[in-house]
Design a protein around this nucleic acid. Structure first.
Lengths: 118, 118
DNA sequence: ATCATATATTCCTATATCGGAATGTGTCAA
DNA sequence: TTGACACATTCCGATATAGGAATATATGAT
């Protein structure tokens, strides 16, 4: 039977790839230096297949690059692929610039702006 | 039976909430002005229940605020909640600053850096 | 060729998630 | 109170996804 409304593919863009906490950890870890899969496994304490699968997702969306080195495969994050996310969040930047007063207010316990109770 | 390894809750943080394209549309639309649910429905051409459900997710993670106004409920995005995403992406900023040459290279068709063929 | 190491893939299962349809709740007006 | 309008929730079915375990592939060493 033909699927009525196929669910949108999820792990096929950077936003979704990054939604997974472990994948963010991996990206953080690979930001400065390239690392082998084994390094990631021991550093983050994850199962090896799990790491490989996450790397696969990250690679498919271009967030990491891989290079074989002997029996090791070295990965490093590709910061350019993160840029679109940065640009999107940046469109909201103007709202939190010069808002030290608001930050102060929240620090004082005032959770929400007046009128917004939900 | 107790679930062996419960999958991590997903729609419970901003990263996941924002991973859904429609939710980003909504956030964009609500960035400048508060809008009613009906406005969002007609503007984005989505089903009303769908919009309500997305708004629910966004509200639960604090990305939007709601205020009742007669029979309408006005929503607006809460930019502060987007800030953590911005901060995270920003940690990669240093890698793409002053990289006009790279951008140029890619425009010339050189997809990946030398050595990274995967 | 064989073995060990490093990494990738496949299979399976439980759960999460989305959309659609139907229904529920709240608010204003007459 | 009844009805209309605005929005929210629930139920359903299809699919996506993550983790675990097992297995496959690739490379280097002997």
């Amino acid at each position: 039977m033909i699927p009525l409304v196929p669910r949108a593919a999820t792990t096929s863009d950077a936003f979704n790839a990054v939604a997974e906490p472990r994948r963010r950890q991996i990206l953080n870890y690979l930001a400065d230096t390239e690392r082998s899969v084994g390094d990631i496994v021991s550093r983050l304490g994850l199962e090896q297949p799990s790491v490989s699968k996450h790397l696969r997702v990250l690679r498919d969306v271009g967030l990491v690059r891989a290079k074989r080195h002997g029996r090791h495969v070295m990965y490093r994050t590709n910061p350019d692929a993160i840029r679109p996310l940065h640009e999107w969040t940046k469109t909201f930047e103007r709202f939190w610039v010069h808002q030290l007063t608001r930050i102060k207010e929240r620090a004082e316990g005032k959770g929400r702006e007046p009128g917004y109770d939900r």
